[in-house]
């Protein structure tokens, strides 16, 4: 935006830090930005075209300056925070991705079948730590690999005992009720 270089002259003279945030599109400001002729810089980020160039000119004025890109917020700030969080919240069977999200298998069991299904898992010699039973949602959560094996068993065998079971691989933010990024049904 115009005036960024003037701010840089001011902060340099004052000796204070200047942080330049790249202008970015969001759901709520898109209309106002478009109205003023701003467009996206590329397909991969929410950056506004030209914002980085204005920031570069201000940066070149000298001083204690930082340019914080729109991509930084997702690629570094959020990703590393999720990784820190995942390291303390992930269960034994969760897989932590490089984005800091967690992946696990989820088995949706019809109401009333949760108990027999849990007994079945114990019979299969699955250790207690290897799965989590959620009676509120009627689901069992476990490692992706185990979910995949179960999908094969269900696909091959006569498993009518548990009604219509659904098996999915879930990827979500690394905290309770975190936003689900991906959900792929494998059975």
């Amino acid at each position: 935006m115009e005036g960024a270089s003037d701010v840089a002259v001011f902060t340099k003279r004052a000796g204070c830090f200047l942080n330049l945030n790249e202008l970015e599109f969001s759901d709520t400001n898109a209309e106002e930005l478009k109205k003023r002729g701003f467009v996206l810089a590329d397909d991969e980020s929410n950056s506004v075209l030209g914002s980085a160039a204005v920031a570069k000119a201000a940066f070149d004025a000298g001083g204690k300056t930082n340019f914080c890109s729109s991509r930084y917020k997702d690629a570094i700030q959020l990703r590393l925070r999720f990784l820190r969080t995942a390291q303390s919240t992930a269960r034994e069977f969760d897989e932590i991705t490089e984005d800091g999200t967690v992946m696990y298998g989820q088995i949706d069991v019809p109401a009333g079948f949760l108990e027999p299904f849990t007994s079945f898992l114990i019979e299969m010699e699955l250790p207690q730590k290897a799965f989590f039973v959620n009676p509120e949602k009627n689901t069992v959560e476990t490692a992706c690999g185990i979910a995949e094996e179960l999908a094969v068993i269900f696909a091959e065998g006569d498993m009518e005992d548990f009604g219509k079971v659904k098996i999915r691989i879930i990827e979500r933010y690394p905290f309770e009720n975190g936003f689900i990024v991906g959900s792929e049904q494998i059975f």
Binding site: F59, G62, T65, Y72, A75, I76, Q77, L80
Partner: peptide, 30 residues
């Protein structure tokens, strides 16, 4: 941190100077 070099990172950000607040954020710890 007063940076000796202007360092671009993988997100296209670059700086000549970072405050403690920035450094903490870059660890994902803010």
């Amino acid at each position: 941190e007063e940076l000796k070099v202007i360092r671009p990172d993988e997100s296209g950000s670059y700086s000549r100077f970072l405050t403690d607040g920035c450094l903490c954020c870059r660890e994902g710890a803010k």
